[in-house]
Each structure stands twice: as structure tokens, then as C-alpha cells.
Amino acid sequence: MAEHELVAPEETRRDFLYVATGAVAAVGAAHAAWPFIDQMNPAADVLALSSIEVDLSPIEPGQQITVKWRAKPVFIRHRTEADIAEARAAPLDDLKDPEADEERAPRPEWLIMVGVCTHLGCIPLADQGEFGGWFCPCHGSHYDTSGRIRKGPAPENLTVPDYVFVDDTTVAIG
């Protein structure tokens, strides 16, 4: 064979082996890389914490609690009649991110939302700001009693997470 190659060198076989080896190495490298990337994704125990149940019975009207859900604060506010009336009275045209209060709080007395400012992630302070709702101290975003952005740099309303009422005093978030 070697003698034969001296006279009529055959390129194809060696070239084929060269390309095939490179291809196998490339596929192997991609397979080896994936676990290194995936190990940084949320682990099973983290994902298992993705829904929580909260007992609402101790929260009086006008009070708010903050619970931790998926590493974030969730505000649960027992709204007063005045809060609700104010939220529903606001004309949608005035809003930066128009959304009806009825959609944000199907059970009007319970406003449940992720307490993370949609600007850059600070936690807004309750019962402050020009609209009687929340005020974010970081860069001055004002939210109303429905958690909608009314003034300041935040682009969107505070996010309402998925939740269901398991019974009248228990809510399951997530």
C-alpha cells in the first residue's frame, strides 16, 4: 500500500479521516460543554420551591405582608374600600402601562404582586409616593394603589404573579 502511494498518492482517504476526526472532536466538545453550562441553571431543589401557599386570615384591611417567593418579595395587601375606589377611579388614559384594576385584582380586597420595581429591581416602599401606593426610593418611581406605575422611570406596572385562592383565606402563588 505504501509503495502504491508513492507512485499515485491518494489524497481522499487521509483527508476523509482528517475531516471525520475533526467532526467527532467538535461533536464531543459540544457534548462535554453542555453539562458545564447546565449546572448553573436552577437546581431541582430551587425549582421545587417555585410555588408557595400563604394564609391570609391574619391580615387586616389596610395591612400588607411580604412573603418570599422564588427568591423575590411578594406583596400581599388587604386593600381598604378607599384603596379600591381610588384604583378603579383612575382613568386608563393617564397610565403609562394601561391595565384595569379589575384585571390586576379579581378579588378587589386582595392585591398580590411581585414587589420588585420594574425599573432596576429595588423594592418599593408601601404607603408612600404621590399616588397613595408604593414609592421606589432608588430612582423615584411612584406606583398607585393598584401597583401601577404612575410617575418615574419604571416602564411597567408591578408584576402580578399567577395565583389561585385555595379557599377563602389561603392563596397558592406560582
Binding site: D38, Q39, A43, D45
Partner: peptide, 11 residues
């Protein structure tokens, strides 16, 4: 936790 929860942790 590495063995059970982390993606590819056992590996």
C-alpha cells in the same frame, strides 16, 4: 445537594 439537585451534579 450536588449529587441530587444540581443539574449534572452527580456527573
Amino acid at each position: 445537594h450536588i449529587m441530587r439537585d444540581v443539574n449534572y451534579g452527580w456527573y
